[in-house]
Design a protein around this nucleic acid. Structure first.
Lengths: 193, 193
DNA sequence: CCTGTTGCCGAATATACTGTTCGGGAACTC
DNA sequence: GAGTTCCCGAACAGTATATTCGGCAACAGG
């Protein structure tokens, strides 16, 4: 790939994140990004459809980095057990706390959400594939786990939930695992219907 | 309150919802709402800060209606047990399926999310207040339950998750309750740390 | 019914941001 | 070194937001 192309794309991606962290994604105009990246309008639109498109392309990198770190920890045997991917995930998110805190708020939150939802859903599916609870549709289970995890992470980023990655992981697993490993015959007491 | 004020505000609220259901919230301009409501620009801005502000005021009514229906069902004894508020909630949402499906998508999704998160959080807190799991911070538990429920509802609205309100309720409870009633000593097996 | 107040209309206007166009010149690939 | 590709710069139309203000009509209270 042409070196110039790579340079402009990376400049724009970096600029967007920087400015978003400073003033919040919703308050970022294309012009702000252009100024920061030293790129001109027409160039921007020859690479990206709009601001959201740029964000989405930035997320590709962030996701790649996350999966990379996850694999490293997998190899080091640090993420065993059911939902073992959660701890590495939390640790990685913890590293870029400023970044994620900025991106969780506002319109970018939806985009981040949509991107990571599918990733987490995949990890969850792979993890739970073997011990699927009987009689409970997969879609509901995935939505349940992913939603719970996303909200916990969000609360953790925003400071509503405190604690280290390990602690948050423990809290999450203690809430999630019992429902997932429960057998179908026990899964609902009469009083709760 | 001046009758004209009430009329104008209600016209605008109704118009916003109508148009949003038709073309999606994100594609609604202030002008669209004005045309539908037969209200002029300056009047709009004398009542609401912007489109989102109008949506927020509309949600007040929707939430009120929801809580009203919930109380009715409570009196009829249809929502007993832990997380008993979930079923009435699902049933109410099911009633306005078109509406919610439209509001879940796009920018309005975040606003709806923010509004109902706090409502569901309150209901959850009240419900779980007595049997708080030991050693698990309340904030994490609330975020867990609320997130799981929100995502399940969203998936249900969008058709990813199928079934009746009763079935979805059962699925949700069977996933959530075991983790909530688990005692602290059992809450984590070594392998999952 | 009368009176003072309040809200709505209508139109104009400033502002800001988006997205597109195009030619000249520089940087890149091979 | 030749030819292609990309970036710059500046201009431009289009669209939506948000504010202003005078005149008229509807309202609440007595």
């Amino acid at each position: 790939m042409d070196r110039r192309v790579k340079r402009t794309r990376e400049s724009l991606q970096r600029a967007l994140i920087e400015v978003a962290v400073e003033v919040g994604y919703d308050n970022v105009s294309v012009q702000n990004v252009l100024d920061r990246a030293n790129v001109v309008r027409s160039t921007f639109y020859s690479h990206f459809r709009d601001k959201n498109d740029l964000l989405e392309s930035s997320l590709v990198n962030l996701k790649a980095g996350m999966l990379h770190q996850w694999r490293l920890r997998l190899e080091h045997g640090e993420s065993k057990g059911e939902l073992g991917f959660v701890l590495p995930l939390l640790q990685h998110v913890d590293g870029g706390r400023h970044l994620w805190k900025a991106l969780v708020i506002g319109e970018s939150g939806r985009i981040v959400d949509r991107n990571f939802r599918s990733m987490i859903a995949d990890l969850t599916r792979r993890d739970l594939g073997l011990k699927q609870p009987v009689g409970i549709e997969e879609a509901a289970t995935i939505a349940f786990v992913v939603g719970a995890l996303m909200y916990v992470i969000e609360g953790w980023m925003l400071g509503t939930i405190s604690g280290t990655a390990t602690e948050v992981n423990q809290r999450f697993l203690s809430l999630a695992l019992p429902g997932l490993t429960q057998t179908s015959t026990l899964r609902l007491r009469k009083s709760a219907i």
